[in-house]
Simulated assay, not measured.
Amino acid sequence: MSSWLPREIEAQREALQQVLLPIAEARGLPNAAYTSESFAAVECDQVLARGWTCIGVGRWVPQPGDLRPVRLLGLPLLMLRDAAGGLKVFHNVCSHRGLELVATPGRSKGLIRCPYHSWSYDLDGNLKATPFVGGPGTRDCPGFDRTRHGLKPVRSAVWCDAVFVDLSGEAEDFETFIAPLAERWGAFDGSRLRHGGADSAFTIEVACNWKLAVENYCEAYHLPWIHPSLNQYSRLEDHYNIAVEGHMAGQGSTAYRPTLSDDGRAFPEHPDLPETWRGAAEYLALFPNVLFGIHADHFYTVVLEPLGPDRTREHFEIYYFGEAALGDDLADLRAANTHQWRGIFEEDRGVVEGMQAGRASPAFRGGVFSPAMDGPTHCFHQWMAGRLLT
């Protein structure tokens, strides 16, 4: 453990150490972890910027030249699709005077032009044009080397269309990071994923800290009371906990059998799945901030975008296994599937916002965990406390 910690974390050292205790003895993260601006700033540096954090999905930049500005706790980043179809991430700032380079999603025909002084970059981040840099009518000046002033790249990786960045440049190899999840879901071929289109995406903004969205997603304990319709066919008794030592946790169901159509139509399933996946589903949070759901007939990603200590934007994207699911004949089923998932996540709004409100109370000191039901949530809390204390 480091001998030096930021003041905000040092003040919470005892509370964070209690999180690391065995589940029957542990408390949850302290209130400041959900309410404090200064704590959030340290959390950004010590958690979100020190490992692989999800910032979006490749579907947001589908064609060469597509540009999408994104933010990670205020830090401006730029996702783009290069001329060869590769996905790249850069710091979204002009090298000249620091203007945010791209303010809205769009498409470049080859160059990304800064609106301030018209410095321009290609899709590989190279600085290509510097008009009047040496005075009116010039493009160069003595001693100025364009190759040193391109866009600053961000280490990035893509898995099942989810885009991850390592702002520190010092995190473990992405293959090592993603291995536990990739191996667990190894029966599924990610290359088969096809996004469902405009009717298969939505965004919800909730008045809670992003960590509460993770915690709520990890556990099935709340199903009977918060999701009564879901609990009718996928009961609490049909769910199991997934608490993996490391950086993921969640839940699974052995009874995922929703009915989206009265005429027997259904989405095509992923081929050659083991029988154990028929009617099954798993829902995993990959720490810190991305949620995945997998079923025999569809897959989804939820990117949690922290907007501040008490606000989170949830970007929900639904994918299917192959082109056959994208036809007009299944458009109503795709819309119904999206409607169903949006309804489930909206049902969670009251509890995550209520927990946020409760974090203002000095009477709440992290709460307690049920050893039988809260293992995944405790797993997340331990991971967070460990990252903050090292």
Rank of each mutant, 00 (worst) to 15 (best):
T130F: 03
T130I: 10
P131C: 02
P131A: 03
P131T: 05
V133G: 00
V133E: 03
G134D: 02
G134N: 09
G135T: 10
G135A: 11
G135S: 11
P136T: 00
R139A: 07
R139C: 06
R139P: 00
D140T: 15
D140H: 12
C141L: 14
P142Q: 11
P142A: 14
G143I: 09
G143Q: 07
G143Y: 03
F144A: 05
F144W: 07
F144V: 08
F144G: 07
D145F: 11
D145I: 08
R146N: 03
T147G: 13
T147V: 12
R148A: 15
R148I: 12
H149C: 13
H149S: 10
H149Y: 15
G150Y: 04
G150F: 02
G150W: 02
L151T: 08
L151I: 12
K152T: 14
P153W: 11
V154L: 03
V154N: 01
V154I: 03
R155Y: 02
S156K: 05
S156Y: 02
S156P: 01
A157P: 03
A157S: 13
V158S: 11
V158I: 14
V158T: 14
V158K: 00
V158N: 04
W159Y: 15
W159R: 04
W159P: 01
W159K: 01
C160M: 13
D161K: 02
D161E: 15
A162W: 02
A162N: 10
A162L: 13
A162T: 12
A162Y: 03
V163R: 00
F164Q: 08
F164H: 08
F164G: 04
F164K: 03
V165L: 05
V165T: 05
V165C: 01
V165Y: 03
D166A: 04
D166H: 03
L167Y: 08
S168V: 07
S168Q: 06
S168T: 06
G169E: 03
G169S: 08
G169I: 06
G169C: 08
E170D: 14
E170M: 13
E170Q: 15
A171P: 07
A171F: 08
A171Q: 09
A171D: 11
A171I: 09
E172F: 00
E172I: 07
E172H: 00
D173E: 13
F174G: 05
F177S: 01
F177Q: 03
I178R: 01
I178M: 12
A179K: 15
A179M: 08
P180F: 02
L181H: 08
L181D: 01
A182Y: 07
A182P: 07
A182V: 11
E183G: 03
E183V: 10
E183Q: 14
R184E: 15
R184A: 15
W185P: 00
W185R: 04
W185F: 09
G186W: 00
G186T: 06
G186H: 12
